[in-house]
């Protein structure tokens, strides 16, 4: 399946990156396709493209602060988690994401 992942933390330097890494790794071992957008105060995010959003089966938002551009994901399957959760239990989040699609 295809996953779009948005991570957002306070500064956009450490936590968002690590959460993204953890989930990327988990997605790869399960054979999912994943694209990532990291947000935060000290950087210009590389935006996920419109097509990527359209193709994604599920949107995972791992946030510590509110993300910008929420309305891009209207009508998608959204899984809202905290950055800390993503860091500590990436496999649990992947399980949840898979469940969300099966419904």
């Amino acid at each position: 399946m295809k996953i779009a992942l948005i991570t957002a933390c306070l500064a956009g330097v450490a936590h968002s990156k690590m959460a993204a890494l953890a989930l990327k790794k988990e997605a790869k071992t399960r054979g999912h396709e994943i694209c990532v957008e990291e947000q935060g105060g000290h950087k210009i995010p590389v935006k996920i493209s419109k097509e990527q959003i359209e193709q994604a089966d599920v949107v995972i938002i791992a946030k510590m602060v509110s993300i910008s551009g929420k309305d891009r994901f209207k009508g998608k399957n959204i899984l809202d988690v905290s950055v800390n959760e993503a860091l500590r239990k990436p496999s649990l989040i992947m399980d949840k994401a898979e469940l969300l699609i099966k419904k």
Binding site: L10, A11, G40, G41, H42, K63, M64, V65, S66
Partner: peptide, 14 residues
């Protein structure tokens, strides 16, 4: 908490 942190996140660069 999230709302506060968002405020702080945008405030820090200034």
């Amino acid at each position: 908490g999230t709302h506060f942190r968002t405020g702080v996140s945008y405030m820090l660069p200034i």
